[in-house]
Each structure stands twice: as C-alpha cells, then as structure tokens.
C-alpha cells in the first residue's frame, strides 16, 4: 500500500501575502496546498487537480467569490470555506446559500482556520460509520433517531427533533436560517425565521446546561446557527 496521500487544499485568494500565510499554516499540519490568484484560475485548478477542500476569498478581482462557489457547486461536492474581510452578514449568507460550507472572517488565527477546515472535511470523510454526535451530556444518535441526556432518553417534539438532527448532521459548521427553513418547513417558509427562533429556544431549554448562555447550540450573529459538538 502506498502512503496515504496528503489532503490537497486549493487556496483561491488574490492577496499574495494571504496565500503565503495560508500555505505556511496548512503545510505545518500536513496539508498539501495549491494556489490560485483569481477566480478563473481557481476554477481551472479545481478541474485540473480536484482538491479535497477549497478555501476561497470572496473579494476576488475578476469573478465574484460567490460566483466561483456557485460554478464549482454545479458539478462538485468538494467542501468549501469562505474567507472574507467584509463583515456584511448578507455577503456571508449569500456565499453560504451559494453552496459554501462555512466562512471565516479575516483576520483569523491559524487554529480557527484549521478547526473550520477539519469540520467541513469531516463531512465527506465520515459519510458512513456510527453516526452519534455528542456534546456536553447530550447524545444524538442519528441512526436510531434517539436523543439522550445524561443517559436517559429525552422527549422532543417532531420538529425539535428534526432541527436538532439537522444541526447535528452539520455539526461544527454554520447553517443559515434559510437552509434550515427550507429543509424543515419547505421553500415557502424561507422568509419567516421567527419559527426557527421559537424552536431553537425550546431546544436550548431542554439541552443546554444554562439556556441563557448557550455553549453548544450557538447563534452565528445574523447568519444562522452552529452546533459545537465534542
């Protein structure tokens, strides 16, 4: 057997300094890094050397970053992490809705970057196996459709269960309001995030040690929710 090849990460970023920084951070923990200085080059590289993950900057000089994401998503399921210096929530949501898996606002630390990257890469790597997500004293058994807290089974309503399941499947990654609403309530409910807020409040009361200061069921301000699993 040959040595397992290192996961290849493509960095689509116009600023040479960031490319160098990312390369430094990623190569230090064993990723192989490929670079592209603009959107068009990024699309080409994705096709020529399919990476295991893509880090893409939203502010590209030639093609908008969101457009790059959309075009890649048309034919590939490769996990994508968005980098942005803008703190506009709309930009992030649009990028996530276009198919990005998570985002990171510049400036960021190497640790943060690696954690996010691991979370999105895990999705493709653990497609099978025992799907149990744990956080705090809570255990979500995706296969058995059972939620336990401190060992005893917890009674959740159907919608609460669906919501928790959805967050658990995407554990560690942000999911936008729109994505949850579409998945759980259908396309027509996309513009009514108030449902979601109500169910989220219920879930926190049942699952969080201190519902007022959630540690696992986190709100990503203005964007969506994120389940921090162990």
């Amino acid at each position: 057997m040959s040595a397992p090849s290192l996961p290849l990460v493509l960095v689509i970023e116009d600023e040479i300094q960031f490319r160098r920084l990312l390369r430094l951070t990623l190569e230090a923990v064993g990723y192989e890094v490929n670079e592209a200085a603009n959107g068009q080059l990024g699309l080409n590289e994705t096709a020529v050397r399919p990476p295991q993950g893509i880090i893409v900057d939203l502010g590209l000089p030639d093609i908008d970053g969101k457009e790059v994401i959309r075009r890649i998503r048309e034919w590939s399921q490769v996990p994508m992490l968005v980098l942005t210096v803008r703190d506009g929530e709309d930009e992030k949501i649009a990028a996530l809705d276009a198919g990005a898996d998570d985002y990171l606002t510049k400036p960021f630390s190497g640790r943060e970057l690696l954690a996010r990257l691991r979370a999105i890469l895990r999705r493709t790597q653990t497609a099978v196996g025992s799907p149990v997500v744990r956080f705090g004293d809570v255990e979500v058994d995706l296969a058995a459709r059972v939620v336990r807290r401190a060992g005893s089974e917890l009674r959740l309503t159907a919608k609460e269960h669906d919501l928790l399941r959805y967050l658990a499947v995407h554990a560690g990654r942000v999911v936008t309001h729109r994505q949850i609403l579409r998945e759980l309530w259908g396309v027509n409910a996309e513009e009514s995030p108030q449902y979601l807020w109500v169910y989220m409040t219920h879930l926190r009361q049942k699952l969080e040690p201190n519902p007022r200061e959630p540690r696992y069921l986190m709100t990503d301000a203005g964007v969506g929710y994120r389940l921090i699993a162990d």
Binding site: E15, Q17, L21, L24, K106, P107, S109, G110
Partner: peptide, 26 residues
C-alpha cells in the same frame, strides 16, 4: 487598509504556536 491589517493580525495570532523556524517568515 484592511488587507494588510488582517495579514498582520492573522500572522501575529500564529506567532506563538508556529514552529520557531517558520516564525521569521511570519
């Protein structure tokens, strides 16, 4: 303005954790 600032902030964050030989590059 923000791009160089982000570079400085991101690099500064990693200064402590990274291998000493990479530190000069940061």
């Amino acid at each position: 303005l923000r791009t160089p600032l982000s570079v400085i902030a991101s690099a500064a964050e990693d200064l402590e954790e990274i291998r000493p030989e990479a530190r000069s590059r940061l």
